[in-house]
Design a protein around this nucleic acid. Sequence first.
DNA 1: GGTAGACCTGGACGC
DNA 2: GCGTCCAGGTCTACC
Length: 320
Amino acid sequence: MSLATPSDYSLARDLCSYGYFLLEPNLWDPKSGVYSTTLNIEGLAVTVRVRQGEAIGAPLVVRADCVLGASQRRHVREQLVRVLRLDEHAATIAEFHGIDPRFASTGRGRLMRSATLFEDVLKTVTSCNVTWPSTLNMNRRLCAVFGTRSASGAYSFPTAAKLARARPTTLRARCSVGYRDVRMVGLARIFAAAERGKRSELDLARLVDSGTPDQAVFDALIELPGIGPYAAANILQLLGRYSRLPLDTESIRHGKTVLGFKGSPAQIMKKVNAHYEPFGAHKFRSYWFELWSHYEQKRGPSWMWERETTGKTFTAALLD
DNA sequence: GGTAGACCTGGACGC
DNA sequence: GCGTCCAGGTCTACC
């Protein structure tokens, strides 16, 4: 199938814009410029290969590894639109560049995310209190153990319903998630209940409703098991809300080495937060693409990173 | 409201 | 090859 893109869209740039593009089930091949992933489509695992022609704004060509019906094709389309941020129009990105012109020349503005909100939440939990290689490992194991296998042998990310039935001890033993086991199964149960439309601690419709204030979404997220201030702010940006910063040790490193701030870690965090305040609703984009530019100075353009080589090397200490 | 300590895994390092 | 140390957010208990 063919997917229309915004007029300023670049698959290589806009996919390779956030670390999750290095996590399974995602795979970007720098040599061929093909993005592949395995989606869960109504219980069927479908591996898709996505490529774009040479021109910016050219449509995407999507090939699946099996024959799909009309409803399945619609779901593939919806999930790819979410992952690739095809719903963020050129005008929105131009608005960001009006506020922060530093990224107008590269066109940076879109942030890649996962096929579902549940996957974004779980990926965020796998990135808390671990170094990046462990995050890579947890996502690989989660897909291999609890994902669904496609015709071409790849695995999708587990659904909330599947993980909700898992034993925490199995997650710990087979996916190396450590003490996150109970929290992850707890999250899966909450999401599975919400997806079934049952009474749940989580109102999914309210989370994705653009009319809901950021503070209300943050308050709802922070009530979830395993979700603290950092994770909630990160999920907020994955929901397309850029007014808050997920502050972590990377923020402190960036504050010290790039922005030249001095003081205790807590003081530096406050300074970093205040530094990006002028960017308002686009605060996170300015922060993130500044950080991302720093990574690219150290490691080369992100669309040249490979999951199994460059992708494994990201730790704060190595980026100082 | 602020903070100390426990929670796990995997990599680095010393022996 | 083994033991020790360290990085990394969240959560609970306590002041």
